[in-house]
């Protein structure tokens, strides 16, 4: 039974979420907060792979998010919506339900390829110099987007709402919450399986002693490539979902400020703790919403809280431990480390 516990819980949770959203028992606002929570979970867990498990300092995560967001948005609008630049829909809008996950995954793959921009220099460079490269990569992505007029340049790109509507017209279900839920679970699941395999443990081996890793048979370049591409690919998936939730993207959403937000979530949760990243993404989303009435002062309060955290509990909420280290009973439901 133990094997299926988690799957059953997740399936029930998804069903409840879909029902609540469909019957509009939870309002639009609460629903959007929940969806951003999911996106933040994807962002923080995927960045944790590089910054926590591999011990690099990547601060350009939002750049990869932008790649995923734009590629999937343009693709979706091209295929399923009428647009003044891309012309009429290429496919029947009723197909959108089936093609949408593919579009999101293609966004992810594009972002993973953009991850090469950082992965390849990482073969030779570490630490601060690599951090600069990630910042530069973030700026480069934003500048590229700003300079392509077909996708709206600095003004942004829209039309994704009609794709989401097309899905709802075909089968009347709250599609966006469902997809966000599925992709969030999928991301965490992929990362967890990757890092708990002997193959994936090459990543923390690089963190703890790169020279020893290379000499003791770990192909460090390959591991770096896998880690960076997986991380940026998942950021791309998050970006794609983000774009379809808002129905509108512009380069201003993916600046260094956004990257900093993701960084904050990773370190709040604890480097190298997957459940920490999930938890901190949830808490951070709630915190930002709770502080919304403060408007601009929010961005004074949040950094200040973090400075306090760094002073008094710098290892973050979880350190590098996982949930069952604190609540051993959880092991009954799920084997966290296998």
């Amino acid at each position: 039974m133990k094997r299926y516990n988690v799957q059953i819980i997740l399936a029930v949770a998804l069903a409840i979420l879909a029902y609540l959203a469909q019957e509009e028992i939870i309002g639009k606002y609460a629903l959007s907060v929940l969806m951003f929570m999911g996106i933040n979970v994807i962002l923080s867990t995927s960045l944790n792979l590089v910054n926590g498990y591999m011990g690099e300092f990547s601060c350009g995560h939002a750049g990869f998010m932008a790649v995923g967001a734009y590629v999937s948005s343009v693709l979706g609008v091209m295929l399923f919506a009428k647009d003044k630049v891309f012309g009429p829909a290429l496919l029947d809008p009723s197909l959108s339900i089936w093609v949408f996950p593919l579009i999101v995954i293609i966004g992810g793959i594009a972002a993973a390829l953009a991850g090469l921009l950082v992965a390849i220099p990482s073969f030779k460079t570490r630490g601060d110099y690599l951090a600069i490269i990630t910042i530069a990569a973030n700026y480069i992505v934003i500048s590229v987007v700003e300079n392509i007029d077909t996708i709206g340049g600095a003004r942004g790109f829209m039309g994704m709402k009609s794709v989401v509507k097309a899905m709802g017209k075909t089968i009347d279900m709250p599609w966006m919450p469902i997809w966000v839920f599925i992709f969030t679970i999928l991301s965490v699941w992929i990362i967890r399986r990757f890092i708990s395999s002997t193959f994936g443990k090459g990543v923390p081996a690089i963190n703890q002693d790169e020279i020893a890793a290379e000499i003791m048979s770990v192909n460090t370049n390959k591991m770096k490539m896998v880690a960076f591409m997986l991380s940026s690919g998942l950021a791309g998936v998050a970006g794609a979902l983000f774009a379809y939730i808002l129905g509108y993207v512009n380069p201003g959403s993916f600046t260094i400020l956004k990257s900093t937000e993701v960084l904050v979530m990773v370190y709040l949760g604890g480097m190298g703790s997957l459940s920490g990243s999930v938890l901190s993404a949830i808490l951070f989303t709630l915190l930002l919403e709770a502080l919304r009435p403060l408007q601009i002062i929010k961005w004074v309060v949040v950094p200040f809280l973090l400075i306090l955290l760094m002073q008094f509990r710098p290892e973050g909420i979880m350190g590098n431990r996982e949930l069952p280290d604190f609540f051993p009973r959880l092991k009954r439901f799920y084997a966290f480390k296998d």
Partner: peptide, 29 residues
């Protein structure tokens, strides 16, 4: 204070990032 505690230098970097945000937005506020 972080240096005194011998904190990992990453924490100092994060603190610096946050201090920058505070300067920007406090000014804005």
């Amino acid at each position: 204070p972080l240096r005194r505690k011998g904190a990992h230098r990453l924490y100092v970097v994060i603190t610096a990032l946050m201090a920058g945000l505070i300067l920007e937005h406090a000014n804005l506020a």
